[in-house]
């Protein structure tokens, strides 16, 4: 039973991280119908920035919690800046181009950012210090769930709540919803669509960076390539839940997290990535709109 619980909570943690990344995919897709291939790289850059900040601050001898907070904030800021810049360079000029062009551009951006980090930093795995302290009250449950995992779950919940508020109750949230419904109409009623798109990229990048910092301190190491696989899986999660739908992305992420956790726990860990891909293929074949997505018909 404990093993089951461990896998269950492991899956939940995994799912939370996927959710943080998947939100960016689903929001961007909802608005400009583009698979932002470079999104995984934004997450990776967030984690790298955090590592760099932490290393510098360690030399200054700062305490762990303060370091985590500062590193987190800087990582989020930088990820947002990267997300914003990527959109301006690689996607904005292609707003009216065929979708295939924008997608190829996104793949190019992903390739570029990976190799940029690889060349500027290193190709080796770097250890990422675990800055989240072991809580004493958690000791009794240590065999099932660690402190880091608790922190991840709580942070994810808070981010989700904030995001819901942003989209449901703020002006920009309303503009985002309007833009995703109909871009032309949104422009006509005076919404600055370019700004809405920028904000979407920034918000998506911010959640991805939070995910990046959390998973890095959980796993304990990073390299330039972590973003790609995580990105693909988060994308799978977003599609699973129904791309374009925010609750769908979260749900899809948990489903994927559990599937991977149980499959690797009970079956085999060699084929961990295969499960995710197989899942994606099956979902797209049998329910292309995802769990919560609406099936959209082209107007003819």
């Amino acid at each position: 039973m404990d093993y089951f619980l461990e896998l269950f909570l492991g899956g939940l943690t995994r799912g939370s991280i996927y959710a943080l990344i998947a939100l960016g995919y689903t929001m961007v897709y909802g608005i400009i119908e583009l698979i932002n291939f470079a999104h995984g790289e934004i997450y990776m850059i967030g984690a790298f920035t955090a590592l760099i900040v932490i290393s510098v601050l360690t030399l200054m001898g700062m305490n762990a919690i303060a370091m985590l907070v500062i590193a987190g904030v800087v990582a989020v800021l930088y990820s947002c800046a990267y997300g914003y810049t990527v959109e301006k360079i690689a996607y904005k000029p292609l707003r009216n181009a065929p979708r295939l062009s924008a997608l190829i551009s996104a793949i190019g951006m992903s390739l570029f950012l990976q190799n940029y980090v690889l060349l500027a930093q290193t190709s080796d795995f770097l250890p990422f210090p675990n800055l989240i302290p072991e809580f004493e009250f958690m000791e009794r449950y240590a065999h099932i769930i660690g402190s880091t995992e608790i922190v991840i779950l709580i942070t994810t919940t808070i981010v989700m709540i904030l995001l819901t508020i942003l989209i449901k109750f703020t002006r920009i949230g309303k503009a985002m919803r309007a833009t995703s419904q109909d871009k032309t109409m949104a422009t006509l009623v005076g919404i600055n669509v370019n700004r809405v798109i920028s904000v979407t990229f920034i918000v998506g990048s911010a959640t991805a960076a939070i995910g990046g910092v959390l998973i890095a301190s959980h796993v304990g190491m990073i390299n330039f390539y972590v973003g790609f696989i995580a990105g693909i899986k988060a994308f799978v999660a977003a599609v699973l839940g129904g791309i374009g739908s925010i609750p769908g992305a979260v749900l899809g992420s948990f489903v994927l997290g559990w599937t991977e956790s149980f499959a690797t726990g009970y079956v085999s860990s060699d084929y961990e990535d295969v499960f995710a891909f197989l899942f994606l293929v099956l979902i797209l074949i049998f329910r292309p709109a995802g769990i919560l997505g609406r099936s959209e018909k082209n107007k003819i």
Binding site: I232, V239, Y271, V281, P288
Partner: peptide, 23 residues
């Protein structure tokens, strides 16, 4: 299996197939 998929989904599924074969 990918006959019904639209452009961008097709891209990601074929990517998945490629990786499955390699793994």
């Amino acid at each position: 299996p990918v006959l019904r998929l639209r452009g961008d989904y097709l891209a990601i599924v074929t990517l998945g197939f490629g990786e499955i074969i390699r793994i």
